[in-house]
């Protein structure tokens, strides 16, 4: 069996994700990288719901869902139990950005501080999709969601994304990485590295949501690529707190990413809002400077 065929094996067909769902791709790709000797602890969220309506499960590895906010704590217990039993399975805690950035932050911080040997994977679709696209701490600046709608006196979400990779690196995590479903081989490599690094590791995967962001399902990967090409999402690796690898790009203006998505439509209609687009461009510029992602073209 080829490597890519194996990808289909551990996360089964028949799940109920939207057509073109990035989260479903995440599930397949991370299991492909981690292998069958992996125990997955899922938070409540879109992925959990679309993959496990009783009596159906799409998971072919041992899998457990308890609550929205406790996947890191449940994973701590699983890791402790395996250690006592002398078992060698790898443990992945999996959650969306709501579970990870917001409600599960306490458990996540506790588990990382204690140094349990597991990998936390956040599939980051930048809002609460399961409950109907409400803002989270991962929602980007100016994105319109159902709880941060654009309106006569609002341009959408008022705050930029929380810098969770830096927070977890500050906990002493040996390996922290960001990845995107737009670059599957890179994603797989990072997950493989994370699960094989002792101690608590974190991988945050950009997972564009066609339903929540407002684009057609076949564009999921194209949108993910644009996020990286505009500098609004940076793929990087941090080892022992230091950035060691960054994906460089020839940057495009942010509006090429923004205009493809309904959640940013208010920045272009009824008339173009150069001020706000400029602020988002400034976020991308800061990212580019901070991580040094710009490829300098020879003149």
């Amino acid at each position: 069996m080829k490597e890519d065929e194996a990808a289909c094996v551990l996360f089964d067909s028949g799940h109920r994700a939207c057509a073109g769902c990035a989260a479903a791709m995440v599930a397949r790709l991370i299991l492909d990288a981690a292998g069958k000797d992996t125990i997955v602890v899922s938070a409540t969220g879109c992925m959990e719901v679309f993959s496990t309506p009783y009596p159906e499960t799409a998971w072919k590895v041992p899998w457990i869902h308890s609550l929205f906010e406790n996947n890191s704590a449940v994973a701590s217990g699983v890791v402790a139990s395996l250690k006592k039993q002398g078992r060698k399975e790898k443990v992945i805690a999996l959650g969306g950005d709501g579970a990870t950035f917001d409600i599960g932050m306490l458990c996540l911080s506790g588990a990382f501080e204690r140094g349990h040997d597991f990998t936390y994977i956040c599939y980051d679709n930048e809002a609460y999709m399961n409950t109907g696209i409400q803002r989270s701490g991962a929602t980007p600046y100016d994105a319109s969601t159902t709880t941060s709608p654009s309106g006569r006196c609002s341009y959408g979400n008022k705050r930029p994304k929380k810098d969770l990779p830096a927070i977890l690196a500050a906990h002493g995590a040996p390996y922290v990485a960001t990845a995107s479903i737009a670059y599957p081989p890179d994603l797989r490599k990072k997950v493989e590295k994370a699960v094989n690094t002792p101690g608590p590791c974190y991988v945050q995967i950009h997972a564009p949501c066609c339903t929540g962001w407002g684009f057609e399902g076949e564009k999921t990967i194209a949108i993910g690529k644009l996020a990286i090409e505009t500098g609004l999402w940076v793929n990087f690796e941090m080892e022992e707190g230091k950035v060691t690898r960054v994906k460089k790009v020839v940057r495009k203006p942010v509006e090429e990413y923004l205009k493809e998505q309904k959640r940013f439509r208010h920045l272009f209609r009824p008339k173009r809002n150069d001020d706000e687009i400029g602020k988002i461009q400034a976020i991308a510029d800061r990212n580019a400077e901070k991580f040094g992602i710009d490829i300098q073209l020879k003149k």
């Binding site: 457990i64 308890s66 406790n70 890191s72 701590s76 911080s109």
Partner: peptide, 16 residues
């Protein structure tokens, strides 16, 4: 770091 996590960890360990 909290009672919430205490019982959550017990849940995970029991399931394992």
């Amino acid at each position: 770091e909290s009672e919430f996590s205490a019982l959550s960890a017990c849940l995970g360990a029991s399931a394992a």
